[in-house]
Design a protein around this nucleic acid. Structure first.
Length: 491
RNA sequence: GGGGCUGUGGUGUAGCUUGGUCUAUCAUCUCGGGUUUGGGACCCGAGGACCUCGGUUCGAAUCCGGGCAGCCCCA
């Protein structure tokens, strides 16, 4: 009889249930906090999340962003100052009382940084020489999402990272957007091994207050799009609303140009869980795992002397692996070896080392990679050297599996009929010819959405938009297609 | 935003239709003891639960209403 420790459904048969079970059983989050959409980040999960933060912080600091920390609050006036951005207002949490007393002026829990940061920006910069300025913060965001909440996918409080950048010229802002794409490639792609496409959003679907919005989108195992981050070209919209001006070389005051970049820490975590995980549970890139190596002893009560040697050997290996920098644990709990195998697979530990009397006698170890279905026999003397290679093999396995899945779920279509079938059958990304990504295309996007039960026009590829063959027609209105756009169902 | 479902020890559940030996089932779990360990061992003992507020009733885990929370499907 199997105990209910492990995952009881298959990932490709019931992704929703699989996802919930992994989140809870691998101790990533606790959803029993009791306030809707607010979850507890448990140690095993939060370690991984902190890695995401570390990578991002390291990368943006290389580009000369510096950290700061703004309050959790935002003033009501500030929130409403930019007219499009004020669209957040109906969903924010207001703080209006302290104890029994009503506050003189209510304020909101910040939904995102713009409205709380830019009033200070208007005080900080006086001269064109103060620019460019690049700041970032790692912080929590909150707003009342009315849709069903899910851990790491949709919440009312969620982990956030945001850069807010100020330039003298629009061209510099556009350069920054390219740098943000680079950050996504390095962090989300290379470090976290998540494939994505980088889109320029259609005109009608930009962030409130932005001139243009760019996003890396990936696909979850159920074929739905998951937006992992967004970069916004804010133009001068906020600088005009918040009065952020500098004096230029020509002695005239000018409004600054701004961008902001916001990777969704939660969304990235959800993608990591969903895309890398398998039927046994979590799979984690080697550098991100709280534990990289688990050592499991196999002992016998009727072989006391040998068992003692086994334990000693395990301890020795544990300390030598720790010494060279691997996060290693010797699991000397009283559970049976089989139980431990299943447990640590569920938690996604990259390497499992098994030591029993045989290994002790032969000076070998048995070793299993989380991504493989076999045990390897290694000479003890080679272990330290081999581990490095094996961890990078694991990372390659994770990466190629993710890439293959992603590639297999990106398709083409040239007709609405065909698109409808593909969406129904596979979901995923589907490339289609489309009339316009300016506001006049929105009508077609709405029709497309209605016809396909909710598929969404993600936008055009960035930075290099794909060419459209000269006589192709928009799959909705049949006018000349100006763009190739990607369509997907979304979270 | 629309629709549906659910809430019983830490976890998963039985009981709810037809209210009454429910002093609440089973497993897991936790603790103590024994025994065992090469892919989810076993035995003995102990511990631990009816989401919340109100209503109906002699009597509510069970019926009704509000609230809170969770899940699923669809936009």
């Amino acid at each position: 009889m199997k105990r209910e420790l492990g995952i009881t459904v298959k990932k490709d048969e019931n992704f929703s249930e699989w996802y919930s079970q992994v989140v809870q059983k691998a101790e990533l989050a606790d959803i029993r906090f009791g306030i809707q959409g607010f979850i507890v980040h448990r140690p095993w999960g939060f370690f991984i999340i902190r890695k995401i933060y570390e990578y991002l912080e390291e990368e943006v600091e290389k580009q000369c962003h510096l950290p700061y920390l703004f309050p959790v609050a935002v003033k009501e006036d500030d929130l409403k100052r930019e007219k499009d951005h004020a669209g957040f207002t109906p969903n924010v949490f207001w703080i209006s009382e302290a104890g029994e007393k009503k506050l003189e002026e209510r304020f909101a829990l910040r939904p995102t940084g713009e409205a709380q940061i830019y009033p200070l920006y208007s005080l900080w910069f006086r001269s064109y020489k103060d620019l460019p300025f690049k700041g970032y913060q790692s912080r929590i965001s909150a707003f009342r999402n009315e849709m069903t909440t899910r851990p790491f996918l949709r919440g009312r409080e969620f982990l956030f990272f945001e850069t807010h950048n100020v330039f003298n010229r629009h061209e510099e802002a556009l350069e920054q957007i390219k740098e943000d794409l680079d950050t996504c490639k390095k962090v989300i792609g290379e470090k976290i091994k998540l494939p994505f496409l980088y889109f320029k959003r259609p005109e009608w679907d930009k962030f409130s207050g932005a001139d243009d919005t760019y996003t890396p989108d990936t696909l979850m195992p159920d074929g739905k799009r998951n937006q992992l981050a967004s970069t916004h070209d804010l133009g001068q919209n906020f600088s005009k609303a918040f009065n952020i001006k500098v004096k230029g070389k020509d002695e005239k005051e000018q409004f600054v140009w701004q961008t902001c970049f916001g990777p969704g820490i939660w969304r990235i975590m959800a993608a990591l869980i969903g895309i890398h995980g398998d039927n046994n549970g979590l799979v984690i890139p080697s550098d991100m795992s709280p534990l990289q190596i688990i050592i499991i002893p196999i002992t016998f009560s009727n072989k006391e002397a040998e068992s003692k040697k086994v334990i000693e050997l395990c301890r020795k290996i544990e300390s030598s692996l720790k010494k060279i920098g691997y996060r290693t644990k010797f699991d000397d709990s009283e559970d049976t070896p089989g139980f431990k195998h299943n447990k640590w697979e569920l938690f996604g530990v990259p390497i499992r080392v098994e030591i029993g009397p045989k290994e002790a006698k032969n000076k070998t170890v048995s070793l299993a990679l989380r991504t493989e279905n076999k045990k390897r026999q290694l000479k003890l003397s080679n272990l330290e050297k081999e581990i490095k290679k094996l961890l990078s093999k694991l990372d390659k396995d994770i990466e190629s599996k993710a890439n293959e899945y992603f590639k297999n779920n990106t398709r083409n279509s040239n007709s609405l009929k065909d698109l409808k079938e593909l969406i129904k059958k596979y979901k995923g990304f589907i490339k289609v010819p489309f009339c316009s990504v300016k506001n006049d295309g929105e009508k077609c996007a709405d029709i497309l959405k209605a016809e396909t039960d909710g598929a969404y026009v993600c936008g055009t590829l960035y930075p290099k938009e794909e060419k459209v063959s000269p006589n192709s027609k928009c799959i909705i209105c049949n006018k000349k297609a100006e763009h190739t756009v990607y369509v997907a169902k979304s979270y």
